[in-house]
Each structure stands twice: as C-alpha cells, then as structure tokens.
Nucleic acid binder design. Sequence first.
DNA 1: AAAACGGGGAG
DNA 2: CTCCCAGTTTT
Length: 364
Amino acid sequence: MTNTEFQSRLLNWYDQNKRSMPWRDCGDPYKIWLSEIMLQQTRVDQATPYFERFVDHYPSVNALAEADQQDVLKVWEGLGYYSRARNLHAAAQLVVDDFDGRVPDSWDDITKLKGVGPYTASAVLSIAFQKKYAVVDGNVIRVLSRYHGIDEDVRSTKTKNGIQEHADELISEERPGDFNQALMELGATICTPSNPDCGSCPLQDGCVAYKTARTEELPYKSKKKKRPHHQIGVGIVRNQKDQVLIALRPDDAMLGGLWEFPGGKQESGETFPDTVKRELHEELDITVSIIKPFMKLDHAYSHFKITLHAYLCELEEGKPEPRTSQEIRWIAIDELTEYPFPKANRRLTEKLMNLNKGQQELEI
DNA sequence: AAAACGGGGAG
DNA sequence: CTCCCAGTTTT
C-alpha cells in the first residue's frame, strides 16, 4: 500500500468514525494543549469530565496563569500525575509572560513549556496549527508495529525511534492533525491491545501482523518489574477544637502540592501504633497517643503498592513543627473538602466527613 | 537506559 | 492479578 493510499483510507475511516470529544475540532490551541496534557497516560473517558471542569474554571491561558496552584491542583484532584498540573500552571504563566498569552506555534518555543515533550509538541503543532509533526504514542506504537510487523521490544528507545521514522514517513501533508488523531483513534477503537477488530480496519490490506496472524503477539513488550508492597502507618490527630492535622507534600515529591495525614513506612519489629508515633515524632516533633484504629485500605501506585493503616490520635505533647520545611495546618472536618488530597487519603477524609455528619463514633 | 510518576478500567 | 492508557522528567 502506498503512503497516499494509507492516508486516504485512514482519513476516510476517521471522517466516518471519529468519536466526539469536547476539544476536538474546536480550533482553540489552549484547549488542545490542555487536552493533550490530560491525555498523557490517561484514557479519553477518564480525562473528559476533568477537561470539562477544568475549562469551566480556567477558560483561557490567562485565567489559568492567574490562578493559585492549590486551586489548580484541587480541580486536578483524582486525575493523577500531579506534576502535569503543576507544570501546566507554570507553563501557562510562561505563555503569558514570554509569548503574549498565545500558545507557541513552533517546535523550539513550545518545547520550552514544562510538561511538553516530543509527543505533546507534535500533537499541538499538528492539531492546532496544521504543522507536519507526527505523533508517536501508545496507540501509534501498537498500530505501526503491527502494520509493519516490527517485533523488537517497543519499550526500547531504538524501536520507538524507528516507529517515529515510519510515522514521519506516513503522515499526511494536507491534514497532519487529522492524520495523527486518526492513527490514535484507530489504535484506541479498532487496533486494540487484545481482540483487535481487524475486520473493520481500513489498513487491513497492508498489515503484516494481520497477514501473518500475529496481531496477538505484536507489539512485543519486555516484562515490567513487579511492584513492592509497603505497609504505611498514618495518624489522624485531633485537638480540643475538633480539628485534624494535615501536612502539605513538597512540590518535588511524589504527590507534590497535595495534602495528607502524616505518617510513614512501618519498620521491622514495629506495631502500627509504634510506626505512627515514631513518624509523627520524627516529622512533626510531637508526641501522640493512639486512640483507636480508624481505617485500613489498599492502594496501588504506578511503581509500588501500599496498605495504609490509619489511627485516630490525640496530641499528647508538643506543638507540630514540620522538620522538612513542609507546611502543616489544623482544619475542621468540614474543611477537608477544600484541600487537594491524593486518592488514598481522600478515602480517609470521606469516612471522616461521613462520621462527622452523623455525629457518631468520632468522639474520643 | 532506566526509574519515577496516579488512577482507573479491561481481561 | 497484570496490563494499558493521546508521556515527561529525573537520575
């Protein structure tokens, strides 16, 4: 199949079958940029409601640039990879300061923005500005590795570079943005990881994997390491004013800019109450007594898993003084909703708020 | 080149 | 349970 045939079959299929998305065909570089950041390692269905809410809060680059980071993170809460939100916020301020409030339309300028790597630069430049840059994401890797019968490990840089060259070679001159979106749309809806719908594929004729019945084994990926599992003890410390103690995670840490109940990893030979007391003493220079177990929950991150053991605590001695220059705050239970929390901690705040509403159990 | 970085859904 | 997702940054 010639490149021209590849393009026309793919684009015709796309014109007939593309899904509706709130940022699609809007022509607004800000919304297209925002959507591409949200879609990094995130499915369309998961990102869409966040996109709508984010645009309601911040309809323009200027609105985003003027916002407080805490408010931006609150809108982003639950979507994960929070450095995306922090970087996007900082990048919006750079766009206002250095680019007159307009999303850059050149490779050299747009890649100056935090959080904009080769994929996002290509996506925004092609979709918003009709420039001929080919995207390579997980979908394109899958479609082209099958189409060309590439059986090298697609996790390796060399293989990805080869796929980038194929994409550069194939991309449409006239409709580069639609071509990119079409290839990704095909990967998301037809050329899926398992059980691809080859009968509906416009590229079936030229597909090596289809012709050799290897769609199930391509793309080849080396195995990922299994994730360690940690036991975490955390303290929900209450004072006489019925407030609880929360701590802000530093910007350069995992979950940076979000709040949490203080705690840490269990050490060998420790009971969980021991862990909570030790961590709160080390991190905040306070002595607490354990009142009772509050909640136990499991949570999985991208590279490790935790079981979180939360205990209701009472401040015994000392005034909390964070040692690692992180901010701490005493807040009422019904204020918990105003702060951005990571998912595992949000499960704790939800139970706290429910119990508080019912006036039960929470009394010490 | 490899690891860090969230959360949700599918199989 | 594992794998994957419209990847980027840091080490």
